[in-house]
Amino acid sequence: MGFKLLSKLLVYLTASIMAIASPLAFSVDSSGEYPTVSEIPVGEVRLYQIADGVWSHIATQSFDGAVYPSNGLIVRDGDELLLIDTAWGAKNTAALLAEIEKQIGLPVTRAVSTHFHDDRVGGVDVLRAAGVATYASPSTRRLAEVEGNEIPTHSLEGLSSSGDAVRFGPVELFYPGAAHSTDNLIVYVPSASVLYGGCAIYELSRTSAGNVADADLAEWPTSIERIQQHYPEAQFVIPGHGLPGGLDLLKHTTNVVKAHTNRSVVE
């Protein structure tokens, strides 16, 4: 069995187990497998329904001669939608809004960016022009300005110390501490036991640490421990890039980060 097929099978099995364990909360999309990078042309966006009122959005972007996937989250909030992270750029984010209108038909009224990198804030200006209120932590807003990236308009308070959590509509926002970046936030959907790890969490097929220019490698494993301790009931975990899975993604990420750190020390 090929690795790609095995990865998709694991996603399907995880979703099936969740649907059985929580039949009222989960209505997993039966329309197909989780979209992969090879299936999404740059400039297009796919939506994948995880649970009743919960979707991931998947886009792709060219970077350094390669094409990478990027995940975000959409959560229903009454007759409105909360968006977590842009679709990595203005063109993708405009396509995301169009796809949401086509498939869901509810307005996106608020959006949260989970850290300051372009795959999370690139497209904020498109959201703002569409009347979406954009939010991020003060740290993310400051770092985005320093980096020359787009800056969300509103500040999220109460997320300055490791372990801080605040309720934001249908989700809980959690600051686990520094990891992929010093400002990275985690998003949890309690009604569906869905954990969105953003770039602080890796997919299972990833074996290298990737972009760690703004990471705190020493603190990252401790931050992941905080996530595990705060959300032990999480059933569906979405990484910032690639295929979702279960809580095993947290341990896998820790292993990859520690291996990278150990290699760096040896070198």
Rank of each mutant, 00 (worst) to 15 (best):
V126Q: 05
L96D: 00
G198E: 04
P107E: 12
G53A: 09
G242D: 06
C199R: 02
D64T: 11
P239Q: 03
E219G: 07
V237S: 01
L159A: 03
R46D: 07
R46A: 09
E39F: 10
S16G: 15
G210R: 05
P35K: 08
S70Y: 02
S208W: 08
E219C: 05
I74M: 05
A129M: 12
Y188W: 14
Y34N: 08
V194K: 00
Y202Q: 15
A51R: 08
Y196V: 02
Q103H: 15
Q103A: 12
A165S: 14
S162T: 10
T14M: 08
I224A: 02
A213Y: 08
T93C: 01
Y48P: 05
E172L: 03
A111E: 13
F3S: 10
R128V: 11
P190C: 05
Y34P: 10
K8R: 10
S193Q: 13
I238V: 09
E219Y: 06
A129C: 03
R110G: 08
R76I: 09
A21M: 14
V171D: 01
T134M: 05
T140F: 04
L249I: 07
S31R: 10
T182H: 11
H57W: 03
P23F: 09
R141F: 03
H115S: 00
F116M: 06
T253A: 04
C199W: 03
Q228L: 13
L156W: 03
L82S: 01
A111L: 08
P23K: 11
L243V: 14
E157T: 12
G169D: 06
A94G: 11
K4Y: 09
E99T: 11
T261W: 10
L13W: 10
S22C: 09
I201N: 06
T222R: 11
V171C: 02
L82R: 01
V37W: 13
L24N: 15
G177V: 02
L96K: 00
V194R: 01
N149F: 15
Q229I: 10
L47G: 04
E150I: 04
S139E: 13
R167A: 11
E203Q: 05
L24S: 14
S22L: 11
Q49L: 10
W88G: 00
S113V: 05
L217V: 11
F168C: 05
P221W: 05
T93P: 00
A59W: 03
N211W: 03
A21L: 12
N149L: 14
D125K: 09
A66C: 06
V124T: 10
G245L: 02
T153W: 09
V257Q: 02
Y231M: 02
L47R: 04
D248V: 09
A200R: 01
E267S: 06
P176I: 04
P69H: 12
V124G: 05
R141M: 13
V187L: 03
T93H: 05
N255H: 11
G32P: 09
V108Y: 00
P138L: 08
E147Y: 15
V237K: 02
L73P: 06
D85G: 00
D119L: 01
F116E: 03
N184S: 04
V132P: 00
Y135L: 01
W220P: 01
V256Q: 05
G43N: 11
T109G: 12
S160N: 13
T222L: 12
S223N: 00
Y196T: 01
T153L: 11
Y196N: 01
S223W: 01
A98V: 13
D125N: 12
L159P: 07
L250V: 04
L73M: 15
A218R: 12
Y196Q: 00
S27P: 12
E150G: 05
I40Y: 07
L249T: 04
N184A: 01
S62N: 07
L73S: 03
L249S: 05
H260M: 06
R226A: 08
A111N: 06
E101H: 14
H154I: 11
E145V: 09
L24I: 15
T36W: 14
A234H: 04
C199T: 03
S264H: 13
P239C: 02
A179Q: 00
E172I: 05
R226C: 02
E233Y: 12
L173M: 07
P41I: 09
M18Q: 15
T60M: 14
A25Y: 14
I100H: 01
R128C: 07
V11H: 15
K251M: 12
A19S: 15
G240C: 01
A178L: 06
D216Q: 08
A136V: 04
A200T: 06
L82A: 02
G43F: 07
P239E: 02
V121G: 01
V132L: 04
G210I: 04
L13P: 08
G242P: 02
R120A: 09
L82M: 09
K251F: 10
S208M: 11
L13A: 14
E80L: 04
E80I: 07
V54L: 06
Y34Q: 10
P41A: 14
Y196K: 00
I186N: 05
I20Y: 08
L195Y: 00
N71V: 02
A98E: 12
P152K: 02
V132N: 01
N92A: 06
E101S: 13
V266S: 15
V37Y: 15
A192E: 11
K102F: 03
I74T: 06
A130T: 11
I224R: 01
I186W: 03
L97E: 02
A25R: 14
V257E: 00
L204Q: 11
P190L: 07
E80A: 10
I20T: 11
S181K: 03
S7L: 07
A218V: 13
P107Y: 07
F3L: 08
T207L: 12
A66S: 12
T253H: 02
T93I: 03
L195A: 01
P221K: 08
V189E: 02
S113G: 05
A98G: 12
F63W: 06
D248S: 12
L243H: 15
N149H: 14
S7D: 07
K251A: 12
G89T: 04
A15E: 06
G32C: 07
I20W: 11
A234P: 08
H260F: 06
V266W: 12
H115E: 00
G198A: 07
D183P: 00
I100G: 01
H230K: 15
R128N: 13
L24D: 14
D29W: 12
T153R: 10
T109Q: 11
V75L: 05
E219F: 06
Y68K: 04
V266N: 11
A15P: 14
I58W: 08
P239F: 03
E150F: 01
H154D: 08
E225T: 11
A90N: 08
A215Y: 02
S31T: 11
G197C: 08
P152N: 02
Q228V: 13
V124K: 01
S16A: 15
D125G: 10
S162C: 07
L24H: 11
I84N: 01
H154S: 10
M18P: 07
D79I: 09
H260C: 10
T182P: 13
A59M: 03
H241C: 03
V237I: 06
V75I: 08
D118F: 06
Y12V: 09
M18V: 15
R206N: 15
T114A: 02
V146W: 12
A133F: 11
H57S: 04
H154N: 10
D85V: 00
T261Y: 09
D79H: 09
T207E: 15
A130Q: 13
C199A: 01
G122Q: 09
E80C: 05
S30N: 13
L97S: 02
P152T: 03
S155Y: 08
E219D: 08
D214L: 02
Y175P: 01
G105F: 03
A25I: 13
A90D: 13
T207H: 14
Y48N: 15
C199Q: 01
I104F: 06
E145F: 13
L173Q: 00
G65V: 06
V67L: 15
R76L: 12
A98Y: 13
W55P: 04
D164L: 08
E80M: 08
G240N: 07
A192R: 11
V194Y: 03
D29R: 10
A213P: 09
S56T: 15
P176M: 01
H117V: 00
F168I: 07
L9Q: 15
G177L: 02
N149G: 10
R167M: 12
I17P: 06
V54P: 02
K102S: 13
V257L: 13
E80P: 02
A259N: 11
S155T: 14
L204S: 12
Q229C: 04
L143Q: 10
S62Q: 08
V121F: 03
S181E: 01
L47K: 03
D214E: 05
E203L: 00
S161M: 14
E267A: 05
D183E: 03
I74K: 02
L47H: 04
T182N: 13
L127W: 01
N262T: 12
L106R: 11
P170I: 05
T153Q: 13
